[in-house]
């Protein structure tokens, strides 16, 4: 239990040094597109190209109309981008900040928040496409959309503990980032991003045992004007509690050793 307390102190300390991670994350996005003429808009454009390209192919593959399929795919891809890149980049949270970690004593969670904030900025750019897609293809929008915010927060809170755990493990075992990247790639195909959950039985293992399916559910359905299933919320809440306890205990025990592994 004392490890959990120590881990929690690290997390709170990280949140407190918000100036640092906010500034670093903002600079990460700016730096990537500095000296490019349309700058950060490239994020939006490449996501739009992907949505319309894949949409055209898969709509005819599944034999559905573009207007029935594209809002689903577009939303799915944008949300998947947030989930997958946050997980993959969290592995490098400590490794890529080694020069700072070796010089300033800051709570470790600060660096994880840098990764999460950076991915949120990118996500915000991609989000711009969705209203356009909904307008063009006439997707219904109703009050369910308000559920998007709690859904997003629930997913981020889950990604934070996963990332914290992965960041510590990756600092020690440098093979973890590669393993995680391949797992996430496989997860893309077994999660309902390209296909619709309704194409499977409601209790199909791909929907029940796959937390990514729940994450997509609580964020995507509100945007498309549907209610997410209660099961998704239960799964994510359960993971949130168990995951954070595990992650805090682990961090309390090992996060101070991270500097020796870099």
């Amino acid at each position: 239990m004392s490890f959990v307390v120590r881990g929690a102190a690290d997390v709170l300390g990280g949140v407190e040094s918000w100036r640092m991670w906010w500034m670093l994350a903002k600079n990460d996005v700016i730096r990537r597109y500095r000296r490019s003429r349309i700058g950060q808009l490239w994020l939006t454009l490449s996501m739009a190209a992907m949505i319309f390209g894949m949409g055209a192919v898969y709509a005819s593959l599944f034999g559905t109309s573009m207007s029935a399929y594209l809002p689903h795919l577009g939303t799915g891809l944008v949300l998947w981008g947030l989930i997958s890149s946050t997980i993959i980049e969290s592995c490098l949270s400590f490794i890529e900040n080694d020069s700072i970690i070796r010089q300033v004593a800051l709570p470790r969670f600060t660096y994880l928040l840098r990764t999460i904030a950076r991915n949120l900025f990118v996500f915000a750019h991609n989000l711009i496409i969705l209203p356009v897609v909904y307008l063009v293809f006439g997707s219904p929008i109703n009050w369910c959309i308000l559920l998007f915010i709690p859904g997003l927060l629930l997913v981020l809170a889950n990604l934070a503990w996963v990332g914290y755990l992965l960041a510590i493990l990756s600092a020690r075992f440098r093979d973890i980032p590669q393993i995680v990247a391949s797992i996430v790639q496989v997860a893309f195909f077994v999660s309902p991003v390209v296909f619709k959950p309704s194409q499977l039985r409601i209790d199909h293992p791909v929907l029940v045992l796959n937390p990514f399916a729940s994450m997509l559910d609580v964020m995507r359905e509100p945007l498309l004007g549907n209610l997410p299933s209660a099961t998704s919320y239960l799964i994510l809440l359960g993971l949130l509690i168990v995951g954070w306890l595990l992650s805090l205990a682990f961090a309390g025990k090992y996060s101070h050793r991270v500097v020796y592994w870099l």
């Binding site: 500034m23 600079n27 730096r31």
Partner: peptide
Amino acid sequence: AMGMDTDATGYENIEMRSIM
């Protein structure tokens, strides 16, 4: 030179370094 970004201007670097 910790935390200096070579593509940022001198003023931006002053701000970033101070926050660090």
